[in-house]
Nucleic acid binder design. Structure first.
Length: 482
RNA sequence: GUCCCCCUCGUCUAGCCCGGUCCAGGACACCUCCCUUUCACGGAGGUAACAAGGGUUCAAAUCCCUUGGGGGACGCCA
C-alpha cells in the first residue's frame, strides 16, 4: 500500500478552534498510525479574510498540542510550497488542463445579478444554483468581453450519471448532477476559489486521505468532478461529524473559550485536550475494560477511521475537565511547578509544597493558584465564615489558649506544623470543646474560610510568625464580632 | 425551499454490518453512603437511553418502510 499522506489545511482567518483541532488530530493520528506523513497546508487564497498573526498562532497552537507535521510552509517538503498563495502558477496550469478536458467558461455575471437570481429561485422554492446565463456566450465574444469586463471561470456540469463519493465514514454517497450547478473555479486574476485550489493541491501533493469536517461533504461532489475531468484518482474521503456546543447549537466563535489558545489560558494541558478530542466522535470500543485515559502515543496506536462516528457530538466541558485532571495527575510536582509557576514574588521556595496541597482538587493548572488565597492573610471582616464561626466565648478562649501554647512551643524550637497541631488539641481540652467546634475556629482564623487544604501542612508553609499574626488578628476580630 | 447526512442514559459512547448471550454495558455529570476533625481526592452503590409508528421474524437496539427531530450544504468563504 502506498504511503499514507494526510493533511490539515486551515485558513489563516482566525484562531485554532476545538473543531479544527480535532480535525487536525484525526488526520495526525491516522498518519502516525499508518507510519504515513502528516502535512500542514495553509489555505490563504482569500486575502480579504486573512487575519494577520493567525497563521503564526495556528503553528503555535498545533506545536503546543504536539501535533507536529512532516511537511509544511515553515519546514518545507518535497511537494511544496505549502501555502496556497504561493501556488497560483500551479492552479493556472491545472485550470488550462481542465479547460482542454471539459467545458470551462467565463462568467460575466455581477454579484448583484447572482444575488437576485438566488433570491428569485428561493422565492419560487426551487433549487438554488447558477442559472447559466453566460454558458452560451461564444468563445469569440467571451474573449472580447474579457478585455474590458470582470469575470470568473465556471466549470459546466452537463447531465449524466449521479456523482458518487465513497466516504470511509458514510459509505457511498450519491448526488444527482442536476442539483450541482456550474460552479466557480477561480477569478480572472488567477486566484482560485477554495473548491478548486483544495482539490488541485490534494491531487498534486499526493494526499491519499482527505480527512475534514462534514461541512465539506457537499463540496466533495464538485471536487470529484474536477478529479474526473483531470484524470486524477480521487483520494479516500473521510468526513468527520461536526462538534456541537453544549446547548446543542453550533460550536461557534462566540463561545470564546473554545479556542485552543483560550483553553490553554484556562490551564488545560495538551494531553487532556487531545484525549478529550479523540473521544469526541471516535471510540476505541473497549473503554469499559481499558478506561478512557489515553496518551497521544496510545491514541496513535489505537486510532482507526472505521470506528469514527457518523452523528455529531456535543462538547462537554465537564468531561474535558475530568480528562485534563487525569493527565494532570501524571505530572510530577516539578513539572507542575514549571507549568504553573508562582505569580507572586517570594513564593519560589515554598511553591512546590504549596501546590502539593491543592493538586488533588485542581482539574486545570489555573486551579492550582487557588492556593494563593491561603498563602495571603485572610480578611476576616469580609468573611461570612468568620462572622458566624468566630463568635461567642469558646472560640475566642480556644484561640487565645492556642496562641499562647503555640508561642511557647515555637519558642522552644518546635516546628510550626507540630506546634499548631498540639496547641489546638491542648486548647480544646482546656476549653472543653472538640471536633468541628474546635477545628473550625482555627481553620477560619487562619484561612478565613471553612473549606481548604489541610491545616497542618499549610502551617508548615506559612511558618510560625505568620500563624501567630493570623491568630492574633482573629482574636482581635472576635472582640468586635458580637 | 432543494439536496446530502445523522438519531442508544442530560452528555460522550459500547452493542448495530454478521437479529437471540441486552428487561442494553462503560465514562462524565448528578444523588447516596464510606473514608476524612473542612473541601477535595479515593472507594462502594444509585437514578437515567434504544426518537415514534408500522412491518419482516419464533425472536429486533440490531433488517425494511414511514413519520418526527437534529445537522450540513446550496458564495467570486474556507
Amino acid at each position: 500500500m502506498a504511503l499514507v499522506r494526510t493533511r490539515f489545511a486551515p485558513s489563516p482567518s482566525g484562531f485554532l478552534h476545538l473543531g479544527n483541532a480535532r480535525t487536525a488530530l484525526f488526520a495526525f493520528l491516522y498518519a502516525r498510525k499508518t507510519n504515513g506523513r502528516f502535512i500542514l497546508r495553509i489555505e490563504d487564497t482569500d486575502q480579504e479574510r486573512l487575519v494577520p498573526g493567525s497563521e503564526a498562532s495556528i503553528y503555535e497552537d498545533l506545536k503546543w498540542l504536539n501535533l507536529n507535521w512532516d511537511e509544511g510552509p515553515d519546514i518545507g517538503g518535497p511537494l511544496g510550497p505549502y501555502r496556497c498563495s504561493e501556488r497560483y502558477d500551479v492552479y493556472k496550469v491545472q485550470l488550462k488542463r481542465l479547460q482542454k478536458a471539459t467545458r470551462v467558461y467565463r462568467c460575466f455575471c455581477t454579484t448583484e445579478q447572482l444575488d437576485q437570481d438566488r433570491a428569485l429561485l428561493s422565492s419560487q422554492k426551487k433549487l438554488i444554483k447558477y442559472v447559466g446565463r453566460c454558458l452560451n456566450i461564444s468563445d469569440a465574444e467571451s474573449e472580447k468581453r474579457a478585455a474590458t469586463e470582470n469575470f470568473v471561470w465556471r466549470m459546466h456540469i452537463p447531465p449524466g450519471d449521479p456523482v458518487v463519493v465513497n466516504d470511509v465514514i458514510r459509505g457511498k454517497v450519491e448526488m444527482s448532477r442536476d442539483v450541482i450547478g456550474d460552479f466557480v473555479l477561480g477569478r480572472a486574476s488567477g486566484v482560485p476559489v477554495f473548491l478548486f485550489a483544495n482539490a488541485i493541491d490534494d491531487a498534486v501533493q499526493e494526499m491519499t486521505h482527505v480527512i475534514r469536517g462534514e461541512d465539506h461533504l457537499s463540496n466533495t461532489f464538485r471536487q470529484v468532478l474536477i478529479y474526473q475531468a483531470l484524470g486524477h484518482e480521487p483520494p479516500v474521503f473521510v468526513h468527520l461529524p461536526m462538534i456541537g456546543s453544549e446547548g446543542g447549537g453550533k460550536l461557534s466563535k462566540r463561545e470564546g473559550s473554545l479556542s485552543i489558545g483560550d483553553l490553554r489560558k484556562e490551564g488545560f494541558i495538551p494531553a487532556g485536550i487531545l484525549n478529550y478530542l479523540a473521544l469526541l466522535g471516535w471510540s476505541p470500543g473497549d473503554t469499559a475494560q481499558t478506561g478512557e485515559k489515553f496518551s497521544l502515543k496510545e491514541l496513535s496506536e489505537r486510532f482507526d477511521l472505521e470506528r469514527v462516528h457518523k452523528g455529531r457530538a456535543l462538547f462537554d466541558y465537564q468531561k474535558l475537565r475530568f480528562l485534563n485532571q487525569q493527565h494532570l495527575n501524571d505530572l510530577s510536582l516539578e513539572e507542575l511547578a514549571k507549568l504553573a509557576p508562582p505569580r507572586k514574588p517570594g513564593l519560589e521556595g515554598i511553591w512546590k509544597d504549596a501546590i502539593a496541597l491543592v493538586r488533588q482538587d485542581a482539574a486545570t493548572l489555573e486551579e492550582l493558584y487557588r492556593i494563593d488565597a491561603f498563602l495571603a492573610a485572610p480578611d476576616l471582616k469580609s468573611s461570612p465564615s468568620a462572622t458566624t464561626i468566630l463568635k461567642g466565648e469558646n472560640p475566642k478562649k480556644a484561640l487565645q489558649e492556642g496562641l499562647s501554647l503555640f508561642e511557647k512551643a515555637v519558642a522552644g524550637n518546635q516546628p510550626a506544623e507540630v506546634a499548631l497541631k498540639e496547641s489546638i488539641q491542648a486548647a480544646g481540652k482546656t476549653v472543653g470543646i472538640k471536633g468541628k467546634d474546635l477545628f473550625f475556629p482555627f481553620r477560619v482564623a487562619l484561612t478565613g474560610v471553612e473549606a481548604g487544604p489541610e491545616l497542618v501542612p499549610l502551617a508548615k508553609i506559612l511558618g510560625s510568625s505568620e500563624i501567630i499574626s493570623r491568630l492574633k488578628n482573629a482574636i482581635e476580630f472576635t472582640a468586635s464580632n458580637t
